[in-house]
């Protein structure tokens, strides 16, 4: 029996369904292959540096286990198949670090905020994109309206005299060009 460190990336959708049941499921995989769990805790819930299986966030689960070297291949195989596990890493360690025995930090708080942050970020990002797009669209619309109104005013003055129409055309071209620069 040797000591190993296992880091698992768990799908947040599964975490939201219930942490305890998921923990049981994951620990069950360890136990199935005769591994003895020394410490197992949720390490962090964070944004991933890149998407894994279309997921932007994940819960990190850190476990220290005692297992026979033969069972490692089976554990690796099972974690690869397990759907809630996005990714996993099994490493040999000489001894369990002292930090591992510290209780989970702010588990309850993060568990409650986790869903909020996870959900809010998912909703916030599209909103931000929408607002930025909306603002730019609004600016475009305003620029078009301004140029259109100016053109109308000019056209009204055009009806007065033919001489003014030449000037009006010159004027009419300049606001349009301004509108184009505003669009840019």
């Amino acid at each position: 029996m040797k000591t190993y460190e296992a880091m698992l990336l768990l799908d947040n959708r599964e975490v939201k369904k219930g942490w305890d049941s998921l923990k049981e499921k994951v620990d069950g995989v360890f136990k199935k292959h005769g591994a003895e769990i020394i410490v197992a805790k949720r390490w962090d819930e964070r944004k991933l540096a890149y998407e894994i299986k279309k997921q932007r966030r994940a819960t990190y689960y850190l476990a220290y286990i005692k297992a026979s070297p033969d069972s490692l291949a089976k554990l690796n195989f099972d974690f690869k198949l397990a759907e809630p596990v996005l990714r996993h890493l099994l490493l040999k360690v000489d001894e369990v670090p002292a930090e591992a025995f510290e209780p989970e930090k702010e588990f309850q708080v993060e568990a409650s905020t986790e869903e909020e942050t996870g959900a809010s970020e998912k909703t916030e990002k599209p909103e931000e994109e929408l607002t930025s797009e909306g603002e730019s669209l609004a600016v475009d619309v305003v620029a078009e309206v301004v140029s259109a109104s100016e053109v109308e005013v000019i056209e009204e003055s055009v009806e007065g005299s033919t001489e003014a129409s030449l000037e009006a055309e010159d004027e009419g071209s300049s606001p349009l060009s301004e509108g184009e620069t505003k669009n840019d």
């Binding site: 990336l9 964070r46 540096a49 890149y50 894994i52 990190y60 990714r87 890493l89």
Partner: peptide, 8 residues
């Protein structure tokens, strides 16, 4: 990097 803690 493998665990997406740091970008590649």
């Amino acid at each position: 990097r493998f665990l997406a803690l740091i970008p590649y």
